[in-house]
């Protein structure tokens, strides 16, 4: 996954006099670039699929053995072989890979070795709660990050600015599970604000969302603070002040958009954090969802489920970063046409 740093230099790009003389790049150039980028994304997903498949199959012993070979079941070696044949586990790896890939393309994700249910059914059940958790978590993280960064840079009182500047490093260093446990202890058990048992759907979401948001808000706020600092040091901000601009004007019109771009890039990368966060958070709060499904599948070495989870995570990650890349030119006009050397 390539992460382009989008900080184009102003000026310097036109080697031969006014760039205005060149006609604007035709629309087709932009579309070709978008298509190329989408192609790259598809390639990343395909590579992830193959890599995940090979890694999962490289694990010692196969899942059939793990599931059915225990002596209590009393299956004979012939019966085991039949089972393996039924699951296609007796074929060469590359044939299994091909079959699995074809399955994914046609929407057949296989069956869970542990429960015998269709993987697609399991995923369909697990996805909505996780999407709610991740979506709300990310939203809260964004709000927290913007709030912290704004107070840390534009706060009216220096000690306040300093206090907010030191928050992100603190948050970064707290592990997710610890936040979850402490929140549960304090909010639910000590203060009794949210019942542990019998809470409604909204109440159930509050603590997990906070837990998953904090470790994402922290690096996001750090990057945003840094980006705002960098932007404030730009000559065009001094020029805007020389026109009589107030702090509010500077933040809104000069700083916000310029500081957004690096932050957006990092936000895309942090999305991966969200997937990892869901595993821990759902386990700590005993919620059902994709994270929990993953944790269970790892415990029972349920390879078809793991394969599906890995591919879905990869697709989500790639799509988010693709969106970030395609949105970037809307924020920064310098990215709208090919920059020449």
């Amino acid at each position: 996954m390539s992460i382009a740093v989008r900080r184009p230099q102003q000026g310097g790009q036109q080697a031969g006099g006014p760039a205005g003389r060149r006609p604007a790049a035709p629309r087709s150039g932009t579309r070709a670039r978008a298509l190329r980028r989408i192609g790259q994304a598809a390639l990343v997903v395909a590579a992830t699929f193959v890599l995940a498949f090979l890694l999962l199959h490289a694990l010692p012993g196969d899942a059939i053995v793990a599931r059915y070979a225990s002596p209590e079941l009393g299956l004979s070696p012939e019966q085991l072989a039949d089972l393996r044949a039924a699951y296609g586990a007796d074929q060469p790896v590359w044939v299994q890979l091909g079959l699995s890939a074809w399955g994914f393309l046609t929407g057949d994700l296989g069956t869970s070795l542990q429960t015998g249910a269709e993987v697609s059914t399991l995923i369909a059940a697990a996805l909505p709660p996780t999407l709610a958790l991740a979506g709300l978590g990310f939203l809260l993280a964004a709000v927290l990050a913007v709030g912290i960064a704004a107070l840390a840079t534009f706060g009216r009182w220096e000690p306040l600015r300093r206090a907010f500047r030191s928050l992100p490093p603190l948050f970064v260093s707290i592990p997710v599970f610890w936040i979850g446990i402490v929140l549960l202890q304090v909010v639910s058990f000590r203060l009794g604000l949210i019942p542990v048992i019998g809470a409604n759907a909204a109440e159930q979401l509050v603590l997990p969302v906070v837990t998953i948001a904090i470790p994402i808000a922290a690096p996001l706020a750090q990057v945003l603070i840094r980006a705002i600092d960098d932007t404030l040091a730009e000559p065009y901000v001094a020029v805007a002040r020389s026109r009589g601009a107030s702090a509010g004007w500077l933040l809104q019109r000069e700083v916000a958009r310029n500081a957004l771009l690096p932050t957006l890039t990092i936000a895309g990368v942090l999305f991966g954090e969200l997937i990892a966060g869901a595993v821990v958070t759902e386990t700590v709060f005993a919620r059902s969802g994709l994270g929990r499904l993953t944790a269970d599948a790892v415990a029972t070495r349920d390879i078809p489920v793991l394969q599906a989870v890995v591919v879905i995570s990869a697709v989500a990650f790639v799509v988010i970063n693709l969106v970030v890349d395609l949105v970037a030119p809307a924020i920064d006009p310098r990215l709208r046409k090919e920059v020449r050397a």
């Binding site: 102003q10 000026g11 019109r253």
Partner: peptide
């Protein structure tokens, strides 16, 4: 002073390359 800036006193800056907001 902020009231006077831009209205009564104006600045022509040094480096035109970096003195205009690139996204405006």
């Amino acid at each position: 002073v902020q009231e006077l800036r831009g209205r009564r006193i104006a600045l022509v800056p040094q480096d035109p390359g970096s003195s205009l907001n690139p996204v405006q």
